[in-house]
Design a protein around this nucleic acid. Structure first.
Lengths: 186, 186
DNA sequence: TACAACCCTACAACTTCAATAGGGTTATAG
DNA sequence: CTATAACCCTATTGAAGTTGTAGGGTTGTA
């Protein structure tokens, strides 16, 4: 489950779109994204097109065009995005649901490696399939506010629209905070 | 954390060595392993050499040579083996302990993606760093016996030695059984 | 009608993966 | 003592994937 750069950029972009929507200005231009995140513009363009083709984003063409979320962030599963970009989550094909393939071992049913990797698969899925984009955005916003960091994507003078909607109180689901000393080496 | 073929073969081989030791015949030849597991002999040779260089295996040269475990299986962490072969477990370098690298995002401390990936990292490590080769071997043996599958690596006529040692009762740690219907798609 | 923005395809440099090739060295058996 | 089975070692290779870059084409607004 090594996340590719492509996958990383895709998720970073989606989180930005979620943030932007939350801040009342859902439409972002590719150039704004590359400015904030510092990544190659043509590469990001390809990724955004892929996300659009998959139904996560929609676009506006022409002079003041850009991209924005096509679906409510509560409805976008991180796991599905990762699958779209990087393929199955399972570390080995013989424990994958979406891309099962018999492996070369003689007795799959009694393969210790397979039992182990099934655990890993489930652990990954339990995180990535439970969290939605909305969860990630919410946690990010909370942390930004807590640390009084200036929020990104300030309202544009001309395109400012209805201010941030009141947010539904979601289950927080508790993402780990990276700061406290981590016990396990990885 | 996609496991490479190399990593897969390495773990399969180590499990076989663990099984073989448990069955009182720790030394296996490369040809026996490839016969049981059906994998390319020259490739496996390279992998076994790497495992030897890392201290997991030792070897006997000459006519009746072969490889065997160099350390007690309780002492071999699956996570460490995976790291040796496939590199860090973390899906993204900025949450890795053993290979931390600053990522390109502007504010690592408030990066939602990073928080998420830290959870994934910890979930993977909680499995792979807790399980030892001994655990995997034990679970495999139990399952083989339960289903009355003939045990592999029958004692050779000439080289038969002291029969299986009495096993210390280990914590089972419960590896998932792949058979029951799995709830989450991965 | 000019320009800013998205749209699309091709390809290239690089790396990794999964082997394959081709021997060299050692120790046992006979 | 010598043949042989087994491990030891290095190099190379073909395919695939990754990470972009290049070069425009199309659309809609000012």
């Amino acid at each position: 489950m090594k996340l590719s750069k492509r996958g990383e950029y895709a998720l970073r972009a989606l989180i930005d779109f979620g943030l932007a929507q939350e801040l009342g200005r859902p439409l972002l231009q590719v150039s704004e994204l590359t400015a904030k995140e510092g990544l190659p513009i043509k590469f990001l363009e390809q990724i955004l097109m892929q996300l659009k083709a998959a139904g996560y984003l929609e676009s506006r063409r022409g002079k003041h065009g850009g991209y924005l979320l096509a679906r409510p962030p509560e409805n976008i599963s991180v796991g599905q995005v990762v699958r779209l970009i990087d393929g199955p989550l399972a570390p080995i094909a013989c424990v994958s649901q979406t891309a099962y393939e018999r492996c070369s071992c003689p007795d799959e049913e009694h393969c210790g490696l397979r039992m182990l990797m099934l655990d890993v698969r489930n652990a990954i899925s339990n995180i990535l399939d439970r969290f939605t984009l909305a969860d990630v955005v919410e946690v990010t916003m909370r942390k930004l506010r807590k640390d009084k960091v200036p929020l990104p994507f300030a309202l544009e003078p001309l395109l400012a629209r209805s201010s941030a909607r009141p947010k539904s109180a979601k289950r927080p689901k508790k993402l780990n905070d990276p700061s406290p000393a981590e016990k396990v080496s990885i």
